[in-house]
């Protein structure tokens, strides 16, 4: 990750935002590229935050990078220069699924305000993921998302919450969580059995 704030792993900062989604810009670091489906938060100074799920990560190229790739072997200094020093950030698109108010209360509906430009965007810690995943209201927002690969995102986010809940096993808390999520999905997608089946297949850890 590029920087750290309050012991949390910072992805980057908000580039642009709207009520339903925002885009964070971050510098590339090979091992720490943001993960599809991860729960992140855009923080406010007053302790409130907007929660969202990563649904797209873009590493844009430019003619310079293309030329370097065509040139073949690159020394490590050149690679690090391109990754860390050039103003070609990795763009991380985030679907807003809820937030946290100043009192620390987590909610799963669209926040009253989008995150401000240059707000820190950090990866949520496992306990935050668990706390957020206790309710499943966010699934409707995900399934209705027009710009995101909704089914893949729903499955990936549920796998993530399950992993934060406990180790996988036939009767463990992760398993129980996925079963509960499956039932909620069945309710939401009662008229779309094929779609439901597709998501359930992808939820397997």
């Amino acid at each position: 990750m590029t920087e750290k704030t309050d012991n949390q792993r910072a992805l980057g900062r908000v580039l642009r935002s709207s009520t339903a989604s925002f885009t964070a810009g971050c510098r590339t670091l090979e091992d720490d590229l943001p993960v599809f489906g991860a729960l992140v938060q855009a923080e406010r100074r007053d302790g409130a935050a907007v929660y969202g799920l990563i649904y797209d990560v873009r590493v844009d190229d430019d003619p310079f990078v293309r030329q370097l790739i065509a040139a073949g072997d690159l020394s490590e200094e050149y690679v690090q220069d391109q990754r860390q020093r050039r103003q070609v950030p990795v763009e991380v698109n985030v679907l807003v699924v809820g937030g946290r108010d100043r009192s620390g209360q987590v909610y799963q509906y669209l926040p009253p305000q989008p995150p401000a430009t240059l707000s820190w965007v950090t990866l949520c810690q496992p306990d935050q993921v668990r706390q957020f995943g206790q309710r499943l209201d966010f699934l409707r927002t995900v399934l209705d998302a027009a710009d995101a690969p909704a089914d893949e995102l729903a499955a990936a986010s549920l796998r993530q919450v399950a992993a934060a809940t406990g180790s996988p096993g036939d009767s463990g808390p992760a398993r129980r969580y996925l079963e509960a999520a499956g039932r909620e999905l069945a309710r939401l997608l009662s008229r779309e059995p094929a779609r439901l089946n597709g998501i359930l297949q992808r939820m397997r850890p």
């Binding site: 020394s75 490590e76 200094e77 690090q80 220069d81 990754r83 020093r85």
Partner: peptide, 14 residues
């Protein structure tokens, strides 16, 4: 300006 130390493996100073 840019300063690159060959063999360091580090990103240059800019």
């Amino acid at each position: 300006a840019i300063v690159l130390r060959q063999g360091s493996g580090a990103a240059p100073f800019t």
